[in-house]
């Protein structure tokens, strides 16, 4: 019964929310959800929209699966999870098409690919199936935010160095260009996303020694 008396934001619950930001970041540590993370990070805006979409899908499907956790037969749980995720993604996709049509065009198939984004399935399997709805909700928000944070960091550097803008606004003044500064066209190309993520992993693990792999 002690669990019911636990305050909504006990330190354990806060940890669920903040851990994925660093120690168990979905992208750099758990290696989940790389696919969509890299392709949409040319500009900050689509990256931000995708991050929000993932937060919504993840929080809601975590709660739904957590509510159903005692009734889902283990043998068919993967299909049930996929159906829950897919229906959420359809909702998000329709909302994006209605209100943010340009961004939805830019994201193209990557909204649909949230379904197979391993981060969502992974958290449902690893967390929501064994935990209460409120904890699952926090875990969903935390992991999706950790994912979104990496997405936005990568997009920020790629947009700043690649096209000299942030969120579509020019930030590098004209006078710098007059000195002979050029946008680095390489940053816009897809492979640079991988290298930027590699660099983020390097920085993070250099600061956080316990994440270093032995291999």
């Amino acid at each position: 019964m002690s669990a019911e008396k636990e305050p909504l934001f006990s330190s354990k619950n806060i940890k669920l929310l903040t851990d994925p930001m660093n120690d168990s970041n979905p992208i750099t540590v758990q290696v989940l959800g790389i696919c969509s993370a890299l392709a949409v990070t040319v500009k900050v805006k689509p990256a931000f929209v995708l991050a929000i979409a993932v937060v919504v899908v993840m929080a809601v499907s975590n709660v739904v699966v957590s509510l159903l956790r005692k009734t889902i037969p283990p043998r068919i749980r993967i299909i049930v999870q996929l159906v829950v995720i897919a229906s959420m993604v359809i909702l998000v996709d329709q909302v994006l098409k209605a209100f943010l049509f340009d961004v939805s065009k830019q994201l193209s198939v990557f909204v649909g690919l949230i379904i197979t984004n391993c981060i969502i399935m992974g958290r449902l399997e690893a967390f929501a199936l064994n935990n209460k709805p409120w904890q699952s909700f926090l875990d969903g928000i935390g992991n999706a935010a950790g994912y979104g944070a990496i997405l936005i960091i990568v997009a920020f550097f790629r947009e700043l160095l690649g096209s000299g803008t942030v969120w579509g606004y020019k930030v590098i003044p004209e006078s710098v260009y007059d000195f002979g500064y050029e946008n680095n066209g390489l940053m816009i190309l897809p492979p640079m996303a991988l290298i930027v993520v590699g660099a983020i992993i390097w920085v993070q693990r250099a600061k956080n020694k316990k994440l270093v792999e032995s291999n």
């Binding site: 991988l194 590699g198 660099a199 390097w202 270093v212 032995s214 291999n215």
Partner: peptide, 12 residues
Amino acid sequence: PDPLKGLGITFI
């Protein structure tokens, strides 16, 4: 370099 081992270098 240690922090780059495994995942990091694979990305790069």
